[in-house]
Every structure is written in C-alpha cells, then in structure tokens.
Design a protein around this nucleic acid. Sequence first.
RNA 1: CGGGGUGUAGCGUAGUCCGGUCAUCGCGCCAGUUUUGGGAACUGGAGGUCGCAGGUUCGAAUCCUGCCACCCCGACCA
Length: 491
Amino acid sequence: MAKNFVTRQENYSEWYNELVVRADLAENSAVRGCMVIKPYGYAIWEKMQAALDKMFKETGHQNAYFPLFIPKSYFEKEAEHVEGFAKECAIVTHHRLKPKSDGSPGLEPDPSAKLEEELIVRPTSETIIWDTYRGWIQSYRDLPILCNQWANVVRWEMRTRMFLRTAEFLWQEGHTAHATKEEAIEETEKMLNVYAYFAEKHMAMPVLKGTKSPNERFAGALDTYCIEAMMQDGKALQAGTSHFLGQNFAKAFDVKFLSKENKLEYVWATSWGVSTRLMGALIMCHSDDHGLVLPPMLAPIQVVIIPIYKTPEQKEKVNQEAQNIIKELKEMNISVKYDDREEYKPGWKFNEYEFKGVPVRITIGARDLEQGLIEIARRDTLEKESISNVGASQKIKTLLDDVQENLYNKALSYREDNTRKVDSWEEFMVEIEKGGFLLCHWDGTPETEEKIKELSKATIRCIPLETEKEEGKCILTGKPSSRRVVFARAY
RNA sequence: CGGGGUGUAGCGUAGUCCGGUCAUCGCGCCAGUUUUGGGAACUGGAGGUCGCAGGUUCGAAUCCUGCCACCCCGACCA
C-alpha cells in the first residue's frame, strides 16, 4: 500500500482526489473551478485524442475550429437549448480594461468599451456551428457535412471535481448535417459505437450502450444515446453521448437544402462528444489502493526499467542490458522509460511508478543478471516473475496485451457482479444503497422518474439498446412496462 | 445560493480558549558523507508579510470587526 494513501474503502472520493494529485495527473488552479492538467495527465489525454481522432477520420470526419465566443442572440434561438445551458454560462460584456476610476490601484472594465451584443463563452457549439452551416449548405450535393472540433468549453459549475466536473474542460464535439432522418440516426448510432469501441478496447472499460430518458436528454435533442460505465464505488458515469438533433437546429438557424426532387427541406443534424471526463472514468475504473492503474494502450510509459547495482562494473553491465531491451521494445513500438537516476533508491522508484500506474516494470539487477535473469512485474495484479533476459521483449509484449485484457475482464465482472434485477419498490430502496446498476421496469413517464430520483437519488442511466422485451410492472407505480431500464446513482 | 468547517514554509501540522524568547514538529528541498533487491541514515543548511484589511493593547498567530479564499454536505450538471 502506498504511504499515507487513503483506501477506496475508507473514503472513495478522497481516494480519487488524492490519486489525481499524487499521480501527477492534475492539480487545482488558482482559478476557481478550473484545473491544471499536468504533463503526465495530459499525455494520457493526448493518447485518447490520438486514438479517437484516428477513428473519426476513418469514419469520414474532418476537423475544423469554431469560435470560443458565441453571440448571445444565437443562444436564444433554440428554446430547449437555451433553457438547458442558460444557468451556467460565462458572459463577456466588455473588451477593454482601464485604471479604476476611484484612483485605487487595479483595473476595471471600461464602460465605454461595453459590447453592443454580449458574448457567451461556448458551453457547446451547436448554435455557432449551425449558424455557420447555413452558409455552407444549399443543395443535397453539399451534404453530408461531417465535422469535428477539439476544443475547450466552459460550464459554470457550482461544485467541481478534477476531470469529472470542472468549469472549463477539454472535449471534442462532432457536428454533422444530413439530407435524411435515417442517415442522421445512422450517424448518431455509428458514433456511439465508435465511443463504445474506444472505451472497451482502449480504456479497457466496459460500457452499456443505451438511450437517455427525456429527463436526461441533451437540451435540444430528439434522442440522446450514451455509453454508461460503472465505477468501483458502484456509481454510474456517463462516458460519452451522441445526439440525434432532428431538425431543431436547422429550423432555429434556417438551414435548408434543395433535394434531388428540387424541394426545399430542413437539414437533419447530429452532435456527439467525449471530454476529459474520460480521464476520471479511466482512473475510477481501474485504479487501486496502491495508486493509478493504466491500461497499456493509454499509458504514456508502458514499461519502466529500474537498474540495481553496486559497483561501477555492475552498473556498466546493467546499463548495457537495459539498452538492449530498450532497443528491442522500441522496435515493437512499446514506450519505455529507463530510470537510472542515482538520487533515488530502487525501492523508492518501485513505489513511484506503481503509483503512477505504469503497466509493466522491469528490474535489472546485477545479481540476477549474472544468472541471465531479469524481473518483470505487472501493475494490475502486482505479480512479479523472473525471466530470462533473452527474448524478454517478446514476453513483455505479451504481458502488456495480457494486462490490457485482464483490466477489461476485471471491470466487466465487477459490473456484472453489481448489476441486478429489482422488482419491488422496497427492494429498490434497499438495493440502491448498495450501489451498482439496478435493472427495473419503469412506466415511461418523466414524472415517475422524477419521483424516483427524489426518493432515492437514483436516475435512469440509460435504456439499454441490447435488451430483450419483457413485460413487467413499473417499480414505483405498478403501471405496465415492456422493458427494463438501468437505474443507478451517478456522477 | 443555504448548512457546516478550515486558513501558520512547497505539503501536512503544534500553538489560538488563557496576548509576553512561539513562530513548533514531520515530510519535501539544498550541500556533504556513507548507502542502493520494496519509499535509506547521519551531519549541516535554505525557506514564513502566521489568508487580507482595520481595530484594541506597551506588546497580537492568539482578542474584536469586516473582507477574501478554499474544503465538505445540499440544489445543478458531461
């Protein structure tokens, strides 16, 4: 166990906060609600970005960039959208500062530089993008438009937590325009699948695919698809969303196209996004009481090598062996760090890299080396093994794959162990306290969902896509229902 | 915005009730020596407007007033 580190059992949320800081992922900044993502944390985000960006390109999307500032009037055009975001907007009112008029030190906004129209710092970009798309689209030949942007957005949150909810965060938002409803829905589902694939293959995090209930739907969408993951405290975390926007924004921003049949029609829209929140999901999905645990596919350092020696002669031999292994690993595209600093003892380094979640550690010790052995240790199970230094790199590659797979399987069985069917309200109130996903019947009304939330603090996380129909009675009202939905307490 | 709490070195803290060599200790940091197979030991050293601004007093980390910041719990949320 890491020194002075709270366990998940003792205090899960403190464990998370401390982990983020001590693993060097991020820290709170001087700006309220905003964090600094540190190089090690950002390196993980960059790996996420690279993998996702590649998948976006492979599915025909292109990157573009739209303004940070959005005229307030744009925001007012789509009624539900405004309502959803108005409460948490940062507003720019002036464009110049001047010395304080009362002569005291400091600056104040210059009243003569008040903006004619106030600007909103984007909480999401649908409005500015749809205003722009109007100019890009005239006929069906201009469609589809498949754009993505990597950007920062601001949502003025009252309570923040690093990576999970900060006032400013990084994300990507895809915005597409289509000629038909069917094509837009297909796009929405396609991107949901991209997210699910990324979560499961790269993050080793199993997710449920589903749609949101009306209460949880994106402001302005007709349908919101999501991937939901389970954290180790049994709470749900929405890891990505994909929205079918219908013609809402096309109508609000008057985006029409001439169809093959020479008819003027409104465009069909989608938007989809994942954010640095994925970092929080990654952390809470795999990490343990020894610190961060990273899946090899997203680890900035996949293998760390720690030398142990006493004499200069031993040092020379150990270094030589290390260089051999480094060369081989690099040829296999495995990222490796050789920590030969002499200021720190091996034991200190073991703990350090363990805490930072490096998937595999190689210890090259002078003593073992005389017998042609090196020690390899895997982060996920903390198991150690002595192996021959000949052909070690191949063994390590296999081990990395194994870690990746094991993390997924572990997370999957955790989710399965904590997912259960519940059929009565009494049982529900007992089970919800234990955490996890509860599969229950629901009568389909927002009122019932609202009531359940009030009573239990649990919400419908999603209506799973892959689920068989089953007749039953609503957990709360007893009214008829044709399928189970997923209830949980959520981040 | 409601309820609770905390501000003393980079971090964590003692001291605050009872004003007077009180600015304490640990970690970390720097230098040197010995060390190196699961967070090394010793010696020496650097580092502070005690959150900020007023006030009371011969004297304030300590008492009074105001302000600010942060944390936790609620409402809100990717």
